[in-house]
Amino acid sequence: MPEITYREALKRALREEMQRDPTVVIWGEDVVAYAGGGAYGVTAGLAKEFPGRVRDTPIAEEAIVGVGLGAAMGGLRPVCEIMTVNFTLVAWDQIVNHVAKQSHMFNGQIKVPMVIRTPNGHGRTAATHSQNFDAWFASIPSLKVVAPATPYDAKGLLKTAIRDDDPVIFLEHLQLYSTRGEVPDEEYLIPIGEADYKRRGKDLSIITWGRMTIESLKAARILAEEGIDVEIVDLRTLRPLDVPTILESVRKTNRAIVVEEGWRTGGLGAEIAATIQEQAFNYLDAPVARVAGLEVPMPYARNLERATIPFAEDVVEAARAMMRNEY
């Protein structure tokens, strides 16, 4: 199977869906002109292929989301790009009070088939540009939230998200755009709401998503050499959570570590840990552990930034401790 980047996988999904459905449009800051298309190159070239359907917008995130919402209500399928997740804060009222309210509050009279694409990430960009709000998005009823880790998942999930009749928050990651993986040329879709076993194992379950899936896979290789056989459940969808798959894995391995990039307090890891103890308490041989980002505004300095974000070695350490019954 050919290997392509996560960035290219996303672009192929956009292209295929635009070819398939003339109501799919792409709006966002610098999606046309800047650097050939998109601050991170995802939409490069698409404006030329689809005249009038890929448009640069003002730097006004509340309007990018709000105008996209109205267009979705009016019969289009907009894919709105918010340059980074940090800027979604400007559009938070639109997302929470409007995008996420329409279908339920208006009793099914309005549907909102829109996708909001935005990357998590960091890279020496300091506190206001290195954040992660996965748990916030995932706590909002009526949103669908996906966070693919691989090029294969990114393509299949973005195609599904565009066809979905509900609003989808599509969380990408700056550190994943250039990663490579196998993606078939044939069309495929990945359902929203289904987790994926990225590695089968018997000793403990790592439940994770996004970039931390990749770090956890690195950790698994190190742990395997030490005789610790971990299973990796990549959630892929953060809302609605695939609880059956989480429980299936934990009931088999009897141990769980939730690995997330964002802040620990109020993180999605807390929700998952609580769910596991509510529904699989009797299967647990150890308390559910968490690996998470440190709770500070991200510093700029190289060493401080690296200390703040979880990496494979943090997962390795947590797994070793759990297998030594140190908790």
Partner: peptide
Amino acid sequence: HLPLAVGLGVA
């Protein structure tokens, strides 16, 4: 609701 009104217009 102002942005979404513009969006309905764009559609």
